[in-house]
Design a protein around this nucleic acid. Structure first.
Lengths: 154, 154
DNA sequence: TTTAAACCCTATAGCGACTTCAGGGTCAAG
DNA sequence: CTTGACCCTGAAGTCGCTATAGGGTTTAAA
């Protein structure tokens, strides 16, 4: 199987597959005489595993760790649980801050309904008011999505 | 006012302020004899505007556009509405896909409660099953958060 | 007066997960 | 024999910072 067929079979872009190879997520495939990559059926399985994990928004590092687990059947699965718990926590945190954000934006959106002069635009006024520290449609209180240092993946 | 004071006044990191300058989001400040940046009061206002928009998760390009509007009071504010609508739509789409994702992950998490051998781990089994296209705890049906081309900012 | 901390400067590289581009080689059909 | 679809490598671009290297300046204390 050539890389284009693998791409079609898995829904992963050709460039992305090569990128996964470069960062060590998929093992180096055999090569045909002309230098083309030659994949076996197992490559589809592995690539689909990666794809599925990516739809779950896992990072490539996490996926790599999971792939390692699948090839070490006798290891404890405590770490799998832990990895998933952390990921779930990240997703829930992001969800929470996104819900707040959506409300802020929706409220801001109500400030201007018609197309009039920018000088009278309630949205702009509201945003400028925030720059003055005055009352504003949005009152971020939980400190989420802030500009401060964030280490965690979003 | 020097850059450190501006940073303290706005809560934006010094490096980030310099970065904003580099990408043209804030205008070039005057310089002292020693080469230090010298800001006026208006810089605080502009920087706070940017900060507020960033807490609303707007992209720097969008913020630039909004800043342009604030300096063109006679322009129509149709575009401001439009920009905000698009941003809101992006946020809502992301919210929807995150909600689906959270459910998928939570369900997946129930597959394994104890620390046993990785070979018996329900989570891994489930993920591998997905690679086979078999039944799985997660059934992504809306196609969100897919691996296909996405142009939009997340 | 020296010296150390705290500030400032520029330029550059790194992050994650790709995407795109430049500049080629290979292969089957018409 | 040429066109077009596919393949290759390596490098740079995306976004919004963050960090690092390698300097210069200012300010306060010892």
């Amino acid at each position: 199987m050539r890389i284009g067929e693998l791409a079609k079979a898995t829904g992963i872009d050709v460039e992305t597959l090569r990128y996964y190879e470069r960062v060590g997520l998929v093992q180096l495939p055999a090569r045909q005489a002309n230098g083309y990559r030659a994949y076996g059926q197992d490559a589809i399985e592995r690539a689909n595993f990666i794809r599925h994990c990516r739809t779950l928004d896992m990072g490539l590092g996490d996926i790599k760790r999971l792939l390692d687990f699948t090839s070490k059947p006798d290891a404890g699965c405590f770490d799998v649980n832990h990895l998933l718990d952390e990921h779930l926590a990240r997703v829930r945190a992001k969800l929470k801050s996104l819900r707040t954000l959506e409300q802020q934006l929706a409220r801001l959106r109500t400030q201007c309904d018609a197309g009039h002069r920018a000088a009278d635009c309630g949205i702009l006024q509201d945003l400028v008011a925030a720059a003055h520290g005055e009352a504003c449609a949005c009152h971020p209180s939980d400190g989420n999505a802030s500009l401060s240092k964030r280490k965690a993946r979003e």
